[in-house]
Design a protein around this nucleic acid. Structure first.
Ligand SMILES: [Zn+2]
Ligand SMILES: [Zn+2]
Ligand SMILES: [Zn+2]
Ligand SMILES: [Zn+2]
Ligand SMILES: [Zn+2]
Ligand SMILES: [Zn+2]
Ligand SMILES: [Zn+2]
Ligand SMILES: [Zn+2]
Ligand SMILES: [Zn+2]
Ligand SMILES: [Zn+2]
Ligand SMILES: [Zn+2]
Ligand SMILES: [Zn+2]
Lengths: 103, 103
DNA sequence: CTTTCTCTGTTTTGTC
DNA sequence: GGACAAAACAGAGAAA
DNA sequence: CTTTCTCTGTTTTGTC
DNA sequence: GGACAAAACAGAGAAA
């Protein structure tokens, strides 16, 4: 880590991103370091599906994307009369929030 | 302005956006209020070109977009041997930065 | 790498 | 109980 | 409004 | 000189 000014170092210590136009602050210093990838061009994670060219910055995005190939719908509502299934955790979360279907 | 907690009011006073997942801080309180539109669905500015359906949150984006209809290239490099023209101020800025073509 | 174009935080300009 | 990292979540939000 | 899907800040889980 | 708002800039960054 190198800093071009004392001001920048102080912001870093306060968990603030110093990329131009960002200005975000975070709850942990560890995450601040992970957040940097948002501003970098690298997309190091590749979809393991043969022939798929999708790339990602975040492991979780890659994990969920892979399900569009497999068709997997791993989230199942625990309410017996409902039984809806979801491919993405976000849609499952919304279902629980809107319907109250929680065990 | 209403706040759901004292914590949220304090962040507002420190020019911090309290939308979930944002966490940005800004140089002025006035801009913090303008920044909110980033999180709202409204796109109140409409392209004035007949038949164009483009909409915008920011006036400047609308102003520059309109030039794709008119073909205008209002930015002209002041160095006589160069004379390049640009449709968008950002490209003109980059030209000056990379070449040093400044009067 | 390029060009084209939009988004947005900050700076500059204009009016009182 | 404590690190600490990895995984997963829970929204936001873009696209159609 | 809907469904599908990606992004990311925070929370939860797993290992020592 | 001071507000204060409007306009414009200067990057970042997505898309092709
Ligand atoms: Zn550090
Ligand atoms: Zn950042
Ligand atoms: Zn894939
Ligand atoms: Zn259900
Ligand atoms: Zn206020
Ligand atoms: Zn915000
Ligand atoms: Zn238009
Ligand atoms: Zn030039
Ligand atoms: Zn674009
Ligand atoms: Zn949404
Ligand atoms: Zn998307
Ligand atoms: Zn760029």
């Amino acid at each position: 880590m190198s800093f071009s000014s004392k001001q920048e170092l102080n912001l870093h210590k306060r968990n603030a991103c110093t990329f131009a136009g960002c200005g975000k602050r975070f709850g942990s210093h560890k995450y601040l370091l992970q957040h940097r990838r948002v501003h970098l061009d690298d997309r190091p994670l590749k979809c393991p599906w043969k022939g798929c060219k999708m790339t990602f910055k975040w492991k979780w995005a890659c994990t969920e994307h892979y399900r569009v190939h497999t068709g997997e719908r791993p989230y199942v509502c625990p309410i017996p009369e409902c039984g809806r299934t979801f491919r993405f955790v976000s849609d499952f979360s919304r279902h629980k929030r809107k319907t109250g279907h929680t065990k």
